[in-house]
Amino acid sequence: MRIWIKFSKDGLLRFLSHLDLLRLWQRALRRAGLPVAYSRGFNPHPRLSFASALPVGIASRAEYADLEFREEISAGDIERLKSALPSGIDIVRWRRVPARAPSLMSLVRACLWTVPLPAGDLNRHLERLQLSDELPVRRKTKKGEKIIDIKPHIYSLEADGKGKRLEMLLACGSEGSAKPVEVLALLPLQWDTAGLLRTEILLAAGDCLQAPMHVLLKEKEVSLNAEEDYYQLRK
């Protein structure tokens, strides 16, 4: 049985690296006594992966685990897992997904981020960003430094209704990405990056973006669930 779990990563546990988080989940699953499926081979490892790595130190309201079990599991099992997880890692929702659905990681296209707005003229900076043809940033990769144009990866930047926070919809995943700190660096204001928060991860569903708990899943097909929130990308 395969499931997706939505969870938050908050408080002190935001300092955990991706690898630390993986270890923490594996051990919590064993403490809860859940029948996780293992890969075959010389060094079997549990079939557990996450949708998208979160930078160390940043909190999230919407992280996702993709998990496979050897047997059927129940709501009671998930309750046990909830209590086996340390506070800071809290399960929000979960859903059953078809065994042959693509990996969650491969479906990720964008993330929603929010950060407290500092004083200053944000609109002037946003305008400048909008008018520029490209926004080159320096990014460290395994092969050294690279200059990347993140302009096409910024889907939207806008202040929330109360003007208290900046909401960012940024591309994420294998088809290119813009990192929140890269975007904030282009807006010369006094950002409190410790207040940065990931609020959603969005998957490609047709031409649209939709959260993992909402998309329709059938066999290998992923499609839009028009009854729930989604984002239409401007062409």
């Binding site: 002190l12 300092f15 955990l16 690296s17 630390d20 919590a28 130190g57 340390p86």
Partner: peptide, 21 residues
């Protein structure tokens, strides 16, 4: 310590003190 010092450290998970058990 948690608010002002921890975020500046290279290996913060050493110092959280709230590990399981």
């Amino acid at each position: 310590f948690l608010e002002k010092i921890l975020p500046r450290l290279e290996k913060p998970t050493r110092y959280l003190g709230n590990e399981v058990n």
